[in-house]
Simulated scan of single mutants.
Amino acid sequence: MTPHLFCLVSQRDDLSLLPALADAGVDGFQVRDKSLATAALVALTRAVVAAVRPAGAVVVVNDRLDVALAAGADGVHLGADDLAVADARRLAPGLVIGATCRSRAEVVTAAGAGADYAGFGPVFASASKAGLPLPLGVPAVADAAGSLPLVAIGGITAATAGEVRAAGAQGVAVIGAIWRQPDPVGAAKELVAAVA
């Protein structure tokens, strides 16, 4: 099952809020922290799994199949420069595998390689990651929908999440829309309502 709302998590975030976020209805968490050494990333992933799995949330690890396997996560999210989706599927047939995609053609390719969902974006401008391409826009979501469940990412807010879902995204992934808000749990509840 592809989550309706992925919250990206790093060591900089307030991990004590994770159980409350999961209880509020955040049904997916992606551990993404490129600054951590492998052992620390495994420890962070284990902490996230322990915090949110009781609520039934899915945990995937960005880029690192080895960390996902070592930490007992549910899956891995792979970018264009990471391990190939087909290789990850062969090595870990039971894991959820997501693939970063920026066009319908890339979504179709990811589906053929064995991905379970496509992380699609950036849909809107985002300040959470440097070096992103120009925003794709909501029409690109509609164009790419159909081959794989899409998880839209990039500048998504509670105000735009419903529009993205209506365009064909199965779910959305956020960072700032939760972690940069004065009340992250309240913000998560608004997002959960918007993607319902």
Rank of each mutant, 00 (worst) to 15 (best):
P3R: 02
P3Y: 02
F6G: 02
F6R: 04
C7E: 03
C7D: 08
V9R: 09
V9C: 08
Q11I: 05
Q11F: 00
Q11D: 13
L15V: 03
L15N: 06
L15Y: 03
L17E: 01
L18Y: 02
A20I: 00
L21I: 05
D23F: 00
G25V: 04
V26L: 05
G28Q: 05
V31I: 10
V31L: 07
V31D: 06
R32E: 05
S35Y: 00
L36F: 02
A37M: 13
A37K: 14
T38W: 07
L41Q: 11
L41S: 07
L41W: 14
L41V: 12
V42D: 14
V42C: 11
A47V: 04
V49W: 14
A50N: 10
A51G: 11
A51Q: 12
R53G: 02
G56E: 06
V59E: 09
V60P: 03
V61D: 02
V61A: 06
N62G: 03
D63F: 04
R64Q: 08
R64E: 05
L65I: 10
D66H: 13
D66I: 15
D66V: 13
D66E: 15
V67D: 01
A68I: 05
A70H: 11
D74N: 08
D74I: 05
G75V: 05
V76M: 02
V76I: 07
L78P: 08
L78S: 04
A80T: 12
D81K: 09
D81H: 10
D82S: 03
D82I: 04
D82W: 04
V85P: 09
A86S: 15
A86Y: 00
R89E: 00
R89S: 00
P93C: 01
L95A: 14
V96N: 01
G98A: 08
A99L: 05
T100R: 09
R104F: 07
R104Q: 13
T109E: 15
A110P: 12
A110Q: 10
A111N: 10
G112Y: 12
G114S: 03
D116H: 15
D116Y: 04
Y117R: 10
A118C: 13
A118H: 13
F124L: 09
F124P: 14
A127S: 14
A127K: 14
K129P: 08
A130Y: 00
G131S: 00
G131D: 10
L132K: 12
L132F: 03
P133N: 10
P133T: 02
L134T: 12
P135S: 11
L136G: 03
L136Q: 06
P139L: 03
P139T: 01
P139H: 03
A142S: 15
A142Y: 10
A145H: 12
S147T: 08
V151W: 05
I153E: 08
G155F: 08
G155T: 04
I156R: 14
I156H: 11
A158P: 10
A158V: 05
T160L: 08
T160Q: 11
R165W: 01
R165M: 14
A167G: 13
G168M: 13
G168K: 12
A173F: 12
A173G: 15
V174G: 09
I175S: 01
G176Y: 09
I178K: 04
W179I: 01
R180P: 00
Q181K: 10
A187V: 05
K189N: 01
K189G: 04
E190F: 00
L191V: 12
V195K: 11
V195I: 11
V195S: 10
A196E: 13
